Amino acid sequence: MAMARFLGLGFLFVFAVIAGQAMAAPKKPIAVARREDIPYIKCGVCEQIVKQLDRQVTSIRNQIAPKRLSEYQIIEVAENICNLKKEEGDWLLHLDIVEDGDKLKLVEQEQEGDCNAECKTIERTCQEVIGYHDTDVAEFLFKSEPQSSSLLKFLCNDLSRACSVKPPPVPKDRTPGEPFVPKSSKEAEMEKIMRSMSGMPGASNMKMYSKDDLMNMPNFGSNGEDEDDEEDEDDDYTSSRMRNTKRPLVSVESDWKKSLLDRVQSTFSNVKDRTQHAVLGAKWSLDRISDKIRKWYKGRKSSSKPSKSQKVEL
């Protein structure tokens, strides 16, 4: 118990140091979407959206079988499919924009890559393609359970018209995009953990720093010159306790962190699911009510107009 308390205080101290130095850490330039590239990749992005919708909806359907997939669950996928901050948008990190003659094509990569200008461009294109059609697509998937070809025609030709027109040729003087830089598996996993905690109170400003970033922070890792005797005694006592501990410190610390993260993720996941289902349910109900009011108003408006026979009699 004492060891766990000591490790907890140590972890909080390190976190406080990182938070205190965050303002002084060098900031990376913010990536911005290249809007001029959107017309050249719009159809390709739409095809990827269809592929991901089909894959993710099928995956959820298989997970909950023999239960039937609800329309709320499909709406959730459709709403988040173009959002890099959501799990449904992870596929955006696997795409690279490559020049192919006078065209731009999307190439899938096995690993996730750093999200720079190209990644933001694909996300922006995805958002423009699906636009306000997410509920229409979700309803189509729920009622029809269509094949990929039918969904492709419905979204890319009928709704968004992203593939109804041939993309223009890419200008010869176009500035090439940045190269695809894959992430390490550890970095990708940590980003997912941080993203899952982003909705928690007080965690919105949390950031993850690499070892190089931490070492570049001013005063990080430096020891104070003045230490009193009481602190020395505490250090000696702590060191002796650690030497007498049979279990390695790293193992205890990793177990403690893993247990904490598991509990946080489990709690946050439950709250997130309930909240999102409630919001989606309310939105679905409002959409249905709006449709009924619109139809009622149109019917009333048409019935209030006098017919030709009535005009003649008058």
Rank of each mutant, 00 (worst) to 15 (best):
K186F: 10
L93C: 08
I41P: 01
S160T: 01
I74Y: 03
K295S: 13
L95S: 01
W91R: 02
A65N: 03
K292A: 10
R35T: 11
K301F: 10
D236I: 02
V137D: 07
H277T: 08
K85T: 03
L69F: 03
P201F: 03
S149H: 05
T135K: 13
S150V: 05
C163V: 08
D173A: 15
T58F: 06
I193T: 06
W91H: 06
K86T: 05
A203L: 12
S269D: 10
E189F: 11
I74G: 03
S185G: 04
Q265W: 00
V98G: 01
S198F: 05
L12Y: 06
K207N: 07
W256F: 09
A117I: 06
E99R: 14
T267D: 09
G113E: 07
D37T: 00
V250S: 08
E123P: 01
G113C: 09
W296E: 12
C46M: 08
D100G: 04
R161A: 12
P201T: 06
P146E: 10
L159R: 08
L249D: 02
D273H: 04
P39V: 13
Q73D: 10
Q73A: 11
F180L: 15
C46G: 12
L260R: 03
R247A: 09
K153S: 11
M1H: 02
S70K: 10
D173T: 13
F268R: 07
E227M: 15
E36C: 04
D136N: 15
N244I: 03
S184M: 13
P248T: 05
P66E: 10
L9T: 07
S59G: 06
P182S: 15
I49E: 09
A4G: 09
C115E: 14
L95Y: 01
K211C: 09
P39A: 14
S160M: 07
K153F: 07
D37A: 07
S210F: 07
L280V: 11
S149T: 07
P168E: 14
V250A: 11
S210G: 14
G177H: 04
N216S: 15
L84N: 09
Q127P: 00
Y40Q: 05
S204Y: 02
S150N: 10
C43N: 05
K120C: 12
L95H: 00
G131V: 07
K311P: 01
L84P: 01
C82K: 05
G199A: 07
M190C: 08
S150R: 08
M206A: 13
S148K: 12
K166V: 13
K258P: 00
M23H: 12
Y297S: 13
G199W: 04
